[in-house]
Design a binder for these strands. Structure first.
Lengths: 196, 196
DNA sequence: CAGAAAAGAGACAGATCTGTCTACATGCTT
DNA sequence: AAGCATGTAGACAGATCTGTCTCTTTTCTG
């Protein structure tokens, strides 16, 4: 079982899956690519080849579909990360390999930043809860690795690494992967050099 | 002439300014607060107290208004930054004072992240040019300070600082100013400690 | 086989959005 | 005084968006 960036991007066309899956996978692509507000229900219905009644049977409102999309994105992204770093022999190597994994993500075709940062930015007031939940779970995962690696202040180290990660995502989204790679590497090197 | 965060927020109600100013100031607040797509022309027209024909006389399309908003935001933000850091005696102090200035911004009422990151995130494909222009001008300004401060590789130092800044903006937007402050300070301290 | 659940196809409603248009008032300039 | 730019007020068009509803067909299950 190998999880790649393609899995993160979602499967291709789904000829004979059930309606809910087709809708969700279609929304998964369109929401990430074009944004939440820019993607209308009608378009999702048309491109997923599903009847309108079927859509509203599974997702009572658009917001419900947005939430399901963010949930799925969170699960896939975390799974991709774990899979991508599963070769690391210990927590220290896991942390050290993070920048390379992110750089791969930044270079993936169709990369358009973090779905949760983008969703949060778009929502204005009252952003979906999953946008911040995702970041907290990522922070918790990193902090766990820091603790395992024997850092003296794993919470601070994790916060520092997360700051660099968020910055790299934004830089890669706006200026391309090359603009993010070296600064992210140096930031990680500096932070991890300070700790045990 | 003193530029404060209030100036960055824009003036209050404008009873008897010309129509264009009222529209632009109203858009300035609504676009930042609620996002570009979420803010309709009709609402801007209603809240600015301007006739529809007057609006379209000054801004032929909504996109033109968005561009004018981003231009104005860029000018005000850069002016605010320069004013806020004008007390720094030299470039090194200017760089060292940057995190405190940003922290003030993060704590300002109504702070909702960077208008250009948000605008870029919302736009999906073909984001407004100003979103990336703003970041390039900020990067250029920081690099200039690094050069003035005698950094050996001002471009690299500036890229590292900008990465931390972007990360801090996103962290402050999603988790609040407290989550961004300490990591940003440490990131700056580390980067600047390495250079002359 | 019979009934129920799920799905397809599409009309429809009501709201909203961008943008155009007409009609009229005000003030400035020539 | 005449002309013109600017402003207000609001109807209107055409598109789009979310969500509801009806009717028919397929598919699963008891």
């Amino acid at each position: 079982m190998f999880t790649t960036l393609d899995d993160l991007a979602g499967p291709g066309p789904l000829p004979d899956q059930d309606a809910r899956t087709r809708v969700l996978e279609c929304a998964y692509r369109l929401f990430y690519r074009h944004g939440l507000r820019a993607t209308g229900i009608d378009r999702i219905i048309a491109e997923s080849g599903v009847a309108k009644a079927s859509f509203y049977r599974h997702f009572p409102t658009k917001q419900a579909l947005v939430d399901a999309y963010l949930d799925l994105r969170h699960v896939r992204w975390m799974r991709w990360l774990e899979s991508r770093l599963s070769a690391a022999p210990d927590a220290r190597a896991w942390l050290a390999a993070l920048p390379d994994a992110l750089d791969e993500w930044f270079r993936a075709p169709g990369f358009r930043g973090c779905a949760f940062i983008n969703g949060h930015a778009e929502a204005g007031t009252d952003a979906p809860a999953m946008t911040v939940t995702h970041k907290r779970e990522l922070a918790a995962r990193i902090e766990c690795a820091c603790r395992e690696a024997g850092c003296v202040r794993p919470d601070e180290v994790a916060a520092d690494l997360l700051l660099a990660i968020e910055g790299a995502i934004v830089r890669a989204q706006m200026e391309g992967a090359d603009a993010a790679r070296a600064p992210l590497m140096r930031a990680f090197a500096r932070v991890l050099a300070e700790t045990a």
